[in-house]
Design a protein around this nucleic acid. Structure first.
Lengths: 200, 200
DNA sequence: CATATACGGAACTGGCCAGTTTCGAAACTG
DNA sequence: CAGTTTCGAAACTGGCCAGTTCCGTATATG
């Protein structure tokens, strides 16, 4: 009998520094063509990898996409990193940063490329939820609660729902109306919807 | 030389009473499987029609889908048909009718089955806009403006944006969060977001 | 009646693409 | 060195499906 199992495997090591490049290429193609339109040949070509390499690391197309979404780099939205200007309006405006908008553009394209799959792939919904949806909602909840504690806004306002207003309206505008989201739009959501709704 | 052109065509007449049945079958399959998952065989079978019949009437799959969406029966949202309870809250609540919710469910499934195509098919976006989006937005605008005229709400509120709040939040909840939209949710959007935002 | 078109149903064609295999070269182990 | 696994690249396989064609039948014109 030989050694149980783990020993040491011979042969060339898998180059895991390529993983991020492949996942990033996946997200690019996904944003451009959507899930159904995306082919693994495109991804392989863009990542300068062979299809065999892809299948050696992910067992299927949907696996690759789920992993790509799940590994997407998230902006730092930890409470400590959030703006603290003293007013809710100041905080919300400070959340609109140029990189944030441009970044959001790509994320939205990825989301729209993937919505059709969400209902069939629960893991995908969870990945999107965890990476793209929840962090932003949590940040908004934090800012709203701080404003409540400060006595700046109505203490009985519905923080849960309010935290999703911007995201919902950006999503709708992009997906259905196909109007680009600019700073003006975001400001008007803040000034015409959110702030009036929480006034004391 | 024979007659110019139009004369009278011989042969069996096309049975246009079947058109609505086919388009409806299309919407059903679309709601169930999404655009990419939908096959014309499925549609033909469901409508008890031959594929040849489909192609005799629509030149392609995307043509059929665009027509099906465009011909979708819209609820009557003409100003005269809208509720007039005397208060904005009463009007908005009156807009939530059981058939309306159930109907909306199917429409949302159709929308999600079709979002991936919107960016590639401008006609599809227009059809969706005209049939599913604009009428509801127009109804909300009407109710909001009437409330402004009545002096019930802030005259300087952003009617255009406010009219899209419910639709956006319903859309987001259904597509991304995958939480069913019930009466309670709609009421909370009205009471926690819309009405507070327009208070004088 | 002959002719022409529509019908539902089924068979066919051709392209696309997920997933697999093969290749020669590179990299690691012992 | 031999053996094993990786790599990128390319060829291959098999299934799915949009779109076409054909069949037997039904319905219209003249």
């Amino acid at each position: 009998m030989t050694t149980a199992a783990p020993a040491v495997k011979p042969g060339r090591k898998r180059d895991h520094t390529r993983d991020p490049e492949i996942l990033d290429a996946t997200l690019d193609v996904l944003a451009e063509t959507g899930y159904d339109g995306m082919t693994l040949d495109q991804v392989a070509t863009r990542a300068k990898a062979g299809k065999a390499t892809l299948y050696r690391r992910w067992s299927s197309k949907s696996d690759l996409v789920i992993d790509a979404v799940a590994c997407m780099k998230k902006e730092n939205l930890a409470p400590e990193a959030l703006p603290d200007t003293g007013t809710l309006r100041g905080d919300l405006l400070a959340m609109i940063k140029p990189p944030s908008i441009q970044d959001a553009e790509r994320k939205l394209k990825i989301m729209s490329g993937v919505v059709s799959m969400i209902s069939k792939q629960p893991e995908l919904r969870e990945a999107i939820q965890a990476v793209m949806v929840e962090p932003r909602a949590a940040a908004n909840r934090f800012l709203l609660r701080r404003a409540v504690d400060r006595g700046e806004i109505r203490p009985d306002c519905d923080v849960e729902t309010l935290a999703l207003v911007s995201a919902s309206m950006v999503f709708y505008r992009t997906m259905i109306q196909q109007i680009p989201v600019d700073r003006d739009f975001l400001v008007s959501v803040i000034d015409e919807i959110l702030l009036p709704a929480v006034r004391r």
